[in-house]
């Protein structure tokens, strides 16, 4: 599993840039980010290099930030790769809280979180899905 920064942002102008500027100032490199938004606020989710340090930097700046443990899976570069993965979890009765993907070095990477991490890890092993750990991601940066 890898660390994701989860950040509470009000849905008003200027809140996103303030957070990103803090990370820039601390020389943190982003790998992926996505926002789950509502009319009034959003949860900004960031995968980055050195997430623990990045989290400390943001906390210091007074940001509502938390570290979430999320799975990172490498997806085959073929149609249906995503469906196969989600199907395996679905078959095991695991629901995913959220999911997003990005490409890095020609590989598709799927990030997801589930409340049942133990069972998810079992499904990953059983299906021989390829997980990516933090050290690997950071090597690529």
């Amino acid at each position: 599993m890898i660390h994701q920064l989860s950040i509470f942002l009000e849905n008003t102008s200027g809140t996103l840039i303030t957070v990103l500027q803090q990370l820039k100032k601390a020389n943190v490199q982003l790998i992926s980010m996505t926002i789950a938004d509502t009319a009034e606020y959003g949860i900004l989710r960031i995968i980055c290099a050195e997430p623990l340090r990045a989290c400390d930097v943001l906390k210091e700046a007074g940001v509502a930030v938390a570290l979430s443990d999320v799975f990172a899976l490498e997806l085959d570069n073929r149609p249906g790769a995503g469906a196969d993965v989600v199907e395996a979890f679905s078959a095991a009765g695991i629901s995913l809280s959220y999911i997003y993907t990005f490409h890095m070095r020609g590989k598709g990477i799927m990030i997801f979180r589930t409340d049942n991490a133990e069972l998810a890890a079992q499904v990953i092993t059983d299906n021989k899905f390829l997980t990516i750990e933090e050290e690997e991601l950071e090597k690529w940066v």
């Binding site: 789950a36 938390a66 959220y98 979180r113």
Partner: peptide
């Protein structure tokens, strides 16, 4: 801030 944990990472 200290109560914003990973529990709250979804709307």
């Amino acid at each position: 801030q200290e109560y914003f944990t990973d529990v709250f990472d979804t709307p």
